[in-house]
Design a protein around this nucleic acid. Structure first.
Lengths: 211, 211
DNA sequence: ACCTGAACACCGTTCAAGT
DNA sequence: ACCTGAACACCGTTCAAGT
């Protein structure tokens, strides 16, 4: 019989991740968390300063694990693509990360990402004067995708068909006033988020190469 | 003497924008809003379904105004830059928009932006097969910047010097483990957000041109 | 030192009662 | 039809009291 383990920062953060994954961003409350941990609400404050710190720790932990696998071999461009996809997949698995990533509290995670991207850009031979701009653009693009995906996971009413939803987006507005949107309706309906995400990364990399 | 105007959706949304601008994202509560409008909290619900709808309406209104000025003349690329900067400046003036833009509720605003960007890409002669990817990338990049800027405005403790803050970011982590970050510290400290934002737009446009 | 859980100061939202 | 404002069902966080 597993005795109840002692409360610890690690166990709290782990339980928080579990709650966020299963119950969503609104599912993480100190009441739910303390019930889950079979303790009082106030006990948590002995190990974590407040909810923000808890969210930062949860985000940092998941993201650090996602970025851990370092593929040796392959071009620097491939390494950037693999890194970006690792972040994408982590957000896909834990959509709440997308919301957290665009908060100043998640600086540590963003700085690690910036560092890794920058290292690959250097290996790519990008001139010193362009490195900062290129790394920033890639990072901002990645956070944009993160935020959007988190929004979809958070706000989508359950049971909504993705295809039908995307189709309704492109067909609801007046086609005469939205000709471009209308022309893109098929692609919008059929597109794959992950592939599309990579297209943007490739465009930025192509722009960097052209400069 | 201005008599107290009747309550209306317009007045409510206007007051909400004012509160968001002056008191920040947390400043908008139905209690503060009803005090501001000299009415009861429940009265607002006769004109707006809930807080989410109020935020969407506020975001949509401000952004529609920002995107209204259409510069004729100039290249399609310049038009895209002008459009992107208009959104950037609107977010700069009303940081809470950045948070709202990455919520599914703000679809109308995003669709308008998508349409406008797409129209310019067509005028630019971008081949049909590339248009969707290019428009998506630009939109995702813009929302990334939006989310980041909103985070900075929301989370930055007041009275914090921007330069000092940016410098601390690049110097706090171990330089040996973060060589790229360390090499970029000067640029990070001195960079201008608006210029940097435009650099990313230009990189994507260059990537589109190269394809 | 750590835990408990009631209490505090807030929220968004509802609804009987008024005009 | 619109407004009022107390009440409800929640939050995050604190803190006296326990072990």
């Amino acid at each position: 019989m597993a005795r109840t383990e002692a409360l610890s920062r690690e166990r709290i953060v782990g339980a928080a991740v579990e709650l966020l994954d299963t119950a969503g961003e609104n599912g993480l409350t100190f009441r739910a968390l303390s019930t889950h941990l079979k303790t009082g609400a106030g006990a948590i404050y002995h190990h974590v300063a407040n909810k923000d710190e808890l969210l930062v720790a949860a985000t940092d932990g998941v993201l650090a694990r996602a970025m851990a696998s370092d593929e040796a071999g392959g071009s620097p461009e491939d390494a950037i693509r693999a890194l970006a996809l690792a972040v994408f997949d982590a957000i896909d698995a834990h959509p709440w990360i997308g919301t957290q990533l665009t908060r100043t509290g998640s600086q540590p995670a963003m700085l690690r990402l910036f560092e890794r991207v920058g290292g690959h850009l250097r290996a790519l031979g990008v001139p010193a004067g362009t490195q900062f701009g290129a790394a920033s653009a890639l990072l901002l693009y990645i956070s944009g995708v993160a935020a959007q995906n988190a929004a979809m996971a958070r706000d989508a009413e359950p049971g909504l068909d993705r295809r039908a939803f995307l189709e309704s987006i492109s067909t609801t507005p007046d086609p005469a006033a939205f000709p471009f949107l209308h022309a893109m309706s098929t692609q919008l309906r059929d597109h794959d988020d992950r592939t599309q995400f990579l297209t943007g990364i490739d465009l930025i990399l192509a722009g960097v190469a052209a400069a």
